[in-house]
Design a protein around this nucleic acid. Sequence first.
DNA 1: AAAATAGATGCATTGGAAGTGCATTATTGC
DNA 2: GCAATAATGCACTTCCAATGCATCTATTTT
Lengths: 138, 138
Amino acid sequence: METIEQILESKNIRVTAMRLLIYKFLAENQVAATLSDVENAFEKADRTTLYRTVKTFVERDIVHQIDDGTGIVKYALCEQNCSCEIETDLHLHFHCNNCNETVCLTEHKIPKIKVPDGFVSENINLVVKGMCDKCSGQ
Amino acid sequence: METIEQILESKNIRVTAMRLLIYKFLAENQVAATLSDVENAFEKADRTTLYRTVKTFVERDIVHQIDDGTGIVKYALCEQNCSCEIETDLHLHFHCNNCNETVCLTEHKIPKIKVPDGFVSENINLVVKGMCDKCSGQ
DNA sequence: AAAATAGATGCATTGGAAGTGCATTATTGC
DNA sequence: GCAATAATGCACTTCCAATGCATCTATTTT
């Protein structure tokens, strides 16, 4: 089991108190978090720091960015060994229209998508919307 | 062939000069348009009017809203008889990372997506990103 | 046809989120 | 410990979405 310190070091970014806290926060959360969520969790910290920390995490493939159609970007930790940029590794996201939460369905990979001739597919964003298990009442 | 007037009337919204113009603009455009695009096309008109006109179109299923991950919502006319809200009718969108244009691939329907027990799928948003036919150089 | 009502448009303004420049503080390597 | 580098915090800007209210236009009612 890798420690958070080791994960950060392996990505060549410095281990700081702030980064450890934000990592832990994202790890404890089952659902994808917005920047506001992070801000609310760390009210003493500056917005910019949180913003740039998360941005660094995204650049180093520690967290991936989710666009669930709400217009607000959400963030979630990548799986161990996940390579977000590789098309075949992409999982799908579920956005609940009721509770507004977005979760990663990591076990559900995105099926192969055909595009017309001349189009080159590099990346796929797939968001399923509806009612999550908690809200559908079972 | 339905006229634009008939289309608007069938959706129970009033036919106005502005609405006809915006409809025509969207119909002539192959690519999905942002609100800024609409604003640039009708510089004499007020931003709010354009904003609300497009919003009305979305509410009445005349245009559909596309979230291609750029953070800026784009709009495109629905196909004739399209029922955006019905899952089986959903087509996919292609966003070109090079020219930043987004097109509807209306002939490419979204494959059936399985979600875990307890989750109820109501809608699917699928955006493929990469290079479009114009930019891939063929 | 005139009055009453509903809807569309325009102006001003607000709010929220993303992003940046710069000074300050902390961390690392020597 | 010192210099170099990176992280953090503050102030500010920009961009887009959204709304309240006044005005204008069109439809409906009598």
